[in-house]
Amino acid sequence: MTAVTRRTALRTAAAGAALAAAPSAAEARGRPAADDDLGLLFDGTRCVGCRACTVKCREANGRAPDVKVVDGVAYDAPLDLGPQTLTVIKRWTEGDREGFVKAQCMHCADPACVSVCMLGALHKEPRGVVGYDVSRCVGCRYCQVACPFNVPRFEWSSATPRITKCELCRHRYAEGKGAACAEACPRDAVRFGRRADLLAEARRRLAAAPEAYYQKIYGERDGGGTGVLVLSAVPFETLGLPLLGKEPVPALGERIQHGIYQGFVAPVALFGALAFVTWRNRGTSHVEEER
Rank of each mutant, 00 (worst) to 15 (best):
A182F: 00
R127M: 09
E288Y: 13
D36W: 10
D71S: 13
W92Q: 09
V130I: 12
V67W: 03
Y213K: 05
V70F: 12
C105K: 05
G245M: 15
A112T: 03
A34C: 10
T85L: 05
G283N: 14
L198R: 02
V265L: 14
A202L: 10
K165L: 14
R162E: 14
G225R: 04
A17F: 06
R6M: 08
A275H: 04
F271E: 03
A189K: 00
Y261W: 13
H171K: 10
C143V: 05
R205F: 03
C53N: 06
D71L: 14
D197W: 04
E94N: 05
R91N: 11
T5K: 06
R204C: 02
A266V: 15
D35K: 09
V138A: 02
R31K: 14
A21G: 07
R6T: 12
H286L: 15
F236C: 05
T54Y: 01
T45Y: 04
V268P: 00
G263W: 06
P267I: 05
A196E: 12
C181P: 00
G272K: 08
R91I: 08
I217G: 02
G245K: 12
K56D: 08
V69N: 11
T226H: 10
C137T: 09
E27Q: 13
V69R: 15
V69D: 11
E167Y: 02
F236E: 06
Y261H: 15
I89R: 01
T93M: 09
T226Q: 10
R58H: 03
G176S: 08
V230Q: 02
T87E: 14
L198W: 05
V145I: 15
G283E: 15
L79S: 12
V48Y: 04
R205Q: 13
P267D: 09
A202V: 07
D133V: 03
A174R: 13
P78N: 05
C47D: 06
G49C: 03
L10N: 03
P248E: 11
V134P: 01
Q144W: 00
V73Q: 13
A9R: 12
A209E: 14
P250K: 06
F42S: 00
F264W: 08
A269M: 13
K90H: 12
R29I: 06
R46W: 00
P161V: 13
Q144A: 07
V114E: 04
L252P: 02
Y142I: 08
R31M: 11
E98D: 12
G120M: 07
F42A: 01
P78E: 06
A25V: 02
V116P: 01
A52S: 14
L198G: 02
A25P: 00
R7W: 12
V48G: 00
P235N: 07
G44T: 10
S157L: 10
I217V: 15
V228E: 03
G131W: 10
S135A: 15
A200Y: 04
S158L: 09
D71P: 03
L81Y: 05
A275Q: 07
C113L: 06
